[in-house]
């Protein structure tokens, strides 16, 4: 498994005399990995994401995508095709008048030949299960459907990485579920690397690896099971704990001899079941 994203000592700020928004960040993302980045508002997560597809360029250090440097002007279009981004607000990223047009927009921008476009359009809509809506106008779609169309627009460019920048935070529970399932499918079946910036800790539990950001720096990096053991650290920087961890703490307080391992609800249920005779 190669490193598809490599960030070395990245420093970035919006204005010359400001403190660093991104302060000496080094990190890597493996090909095919699902990496979650968590951190409070203003911790630099979204700025970091914009550095990864060359929307913002490093002031110091470097960002490499599949070996290509984002400061290389000749490589930038290739990088942007490889790194798709889904933003928070479904209404702000729908540019076409119909679903079809919206998905085609990115391909037109990248000069993909028409015949090729037609094939890719169908494939992309099928992958996000929106093929029946190809001719629909955006106002007839739910938030989750609009976000899936945004994902289809990215998929049509056959990217290797998709960055979700709080892409589910404005959706209802069903919409949220739709996006996560679509992305898991693309991650598993199409080996697309997923980098998810999120406040939803329940979603982060399922990732392969996590990064915690605070004040523009990487504060922790590790498996979800390791990160969520550090309850105090997370609370100190304005984050919360997943439900299962809070539940585990409350049950331990009531004298249930639980281990610190359960992260998924199913795991906690399983553990409680084995302890049933001791409660």
């Amino acid at each position: 498994m190669g490193k598809i994203i490599e960030v070395n000592d990245l420093c970035f700020r919006y204005y010359e005399h400001d403190p660093w928004t991104i302060d000496s960040v080094s990190l890597f993302v493996n090909e095919g990995e699902w990496l979650s980045i968590i951190g409070h508002n203003g911790s630099g997560k979204s700025t970091l994401a914009k550095c990864l597809n060359g929307l913002l360029l490093p002031e110091e250090g470097s960002v490499k995508i599949g070996g290509l440097d984002t400061r290389d002007e000749l490589a930038i279009w290739d990088i942007r095709r490889q790194v798709g981004m889904v933003f928070q607000n479904p209404d702000n990223q729908f540019v076409g008048t119909t679903v079809k047009d919206d998905v085609a927009f990115g391909m037109e921008n990248h000069g993909i030949p028409r015949n090729d476009m037609i094939v890719r359009l169908d494939e992309a809509l099928k992958l996000v299960q929106m093929e029946e809506y190809a001719a629909e106008e955006p106002h007839r779609l739910s938030g989750g459907q609009k976000q899936r169309v945004a994902i289809a627009g990215i998929i049509a460019l056959s990217p290797s990485i998709i960055i979700l920048d709080e892409a589910t935070s404005m959706l209802d529970p069903q919409g949220r579920q739709e996006i996560i399932e679509t992305m898991r499918y693309l991650n598993k079946e199409n080996n697309i690397t997923v980098l998810s910036i999120t406040h939803d800790l329940e979603e982060a539990i399922y990732s392969d690896r996590m990064i915690v950001m605070n004040q523009g720096k990487v504060l922790r990096e590790g498996l979800p099971s390791e990160i969520f053991k550090e309850a105090k650290m997370l609370e100190d920087i304005g984050l919360d704990l997943p439900f299962t961890v809070k539940m585990r703490q409350a049950l331990s307080k009531l004298g249930v001899p639980l281990s610190e391992n359960a992260l998924l609800q199913e795991e906690l249920v399983e553990e409680l079941w084995t302890l049933q005779s001791k409660i």
Binding site: S142, D172, Q174, F243, T244, Q265, L268, V269, W273
Partner: peptide, 19 residues
């Protein structure tokens, strides 16, 4: 309706099924 139950009840439902 595209909605859900709160996480607390979701958890208790799973536990209930198991035990």
């Amino acid at each position: 309706l595209g909605l859900d139950i709160p996480v607390t009840m979701n958890f208790l439902a799973k536990l209930n099924k198991k035990v």
